[in-house]
Structures are given as C-alpha cells and as structure tokens.
Amino acid sequence: MLLLNQKLWIEAAKLRFPVGAGGKGKMKVVKKKILPEYFQVVRAREKNFEIRVDEDNIQVGDLLILEEWNGFYTGNSVRRYVKYVLRDSPALGLVPGYCIVSW
C-alpha cells in the first residue's frame, strides 16, 4: 500500500511539475533522513525549508521525501515539492557546499 501511494505521489508530481531540474530535464525524487524534532515541525507545516549539504543537485520541481530517522527509519515520511533552492551565497552566511531548499 505504501509503495502504491508513493508511486501515485510521484506520478502526481510529474503532472504538477512536468519539467524539473531548472527546466533542463525531468523532475527527480530525492530521499533524505530527518531527525524527529525537525520532522514534527515539517509535518505540521511550521517549517518549510532545510539547510543541507549540496550533494543531490536538488532543483525547483523535484520531489523531496523526508523520512524520519531516529537511529532507524520510523516509517514516517513527508513529501514536499521544491519551490526554491539557494546556493553560493556566502554573503548571506551560507557556507560553500551547502544549500537551502524550500517548499
């Protein structure tokens, strides 16, 4: 059932964001771990961004799946469509090699 729901989310994302990767390709799905204290506020929609190591080339339109991690996967996850990515902004205090992803 979970796998079926995940496939439906991905298909819906393709319809909502038919062109991802900054308009240069298709939307991709990026899965990331998230600690419970942050997971709860993301799920409650009180937090709408993550500061992450820029290792996945996340782009506007990508589907970000945040999976709750408490030393093990809890089975809880949230799905968010990326709306903005900030990179290369040391003047704003963003360390090189990191990005801010918002949804």
Score class of each variant (00 low, 15 high):
30 V>Q: 05
46 E>P: 00
73 Y>H: 15
20 G>E: 03
61 G>A: 01
15 L>F: 09
81 Y>M: 13
19 V>T: 13
12 A>V: 04
32 K>E: 11
102 S>R: 09
3 L>A: 15
17 F>S: 02
82 V>P: 02
82 V>H: 09
96 P>D: 15
1 M>D: 03
23 G>M: 08
36 P>W: 01
49 F>M: 05
23 G>R: 06
53 V>K: 05
67 E>Q: 13
26 K>R: 13
81 Y>W: 09
2 L>C: 08
33 K>P: 00
48 N>K: 12
96 P>I: 11
70 N>M: 01
31 K>N: 15
69 W>G: 03
67 E>W: 03
58 I>T: 11
20 G>P: 11
37 E>Y: 00
39 F>I: 02
18 P>K: 11
44 A>Y: 06
78 V>L: 09
12 A>Y: 08
50 E>R: 00
32 K>P: 04
4 L>F: 05
39 F>L: 03
24 K>N: 07
32 K>I: 14
23 G>V: 09
99 C>K: 09
22 G>M: 00
22 G>Y: 02
65 I>E: 14
68 E>K: 07
93 G>W: 12
41 V>C: 09
70 N>K: 11
28 K>Q: 14
65 I>A: 12
21 A>Q: 13
70 N>D: 13
32 K>L: 15
94 L>S: 07
42 V>H: 10
70 N>S: 10
43 R>P: 03
24 K>L: 07
13 A>R: 06
28 K>E: 13
37 E>T: 02
53 V>C: 04
7 K>L: 14
22 G>I: 01
13 A>T: 12
53 V>Y: 09
51 I>H: 00
34 I>G: 04
100 I>A: 12
42 V>K: 04
50 E>M: 01
71 G>P: 05
4 L>T: 11
31 K>H: 13
23 G>E: 02
72 F>P: 00
5 N>D: 10
88 D>I: 07
100 I>E: 00
66 L>V: 07
99 C>Y: 06
94 L>P: 12
58 I>A: 03
27 M>H: 07
92 L>A: 15
19 V>M: 06
71 G>C: 06
15 L>H: 10
89 S>R: 15
13 A>D: 05
67 E>P: 00
27 M>W: 06
32 K>W: 10
5 N>R: 11
55 E>A: 10
23 G>D: 01
94 L>V: 04
31 K>R: 14
12 A>K: 14
62 D>M: 10
103 W>V: 01
60 V>Y: 03
13 A>G: 15
76 N>W: 02
9 W>Q: 10
74 T>F: 10
96 P>C: 11
7 K>T: 10
67 E>L: 04
26 K>M: 09
43 R>C: 06
36 P>C: 00
81 Y>A: 14
61 G>K: 04
66 L>Y: 08
2 L>M: 12
79 R>D: 08
65 I>D: 05
1 M>I: 04
47 K>P: 09
12 A>G: 12
47 K>N: 06
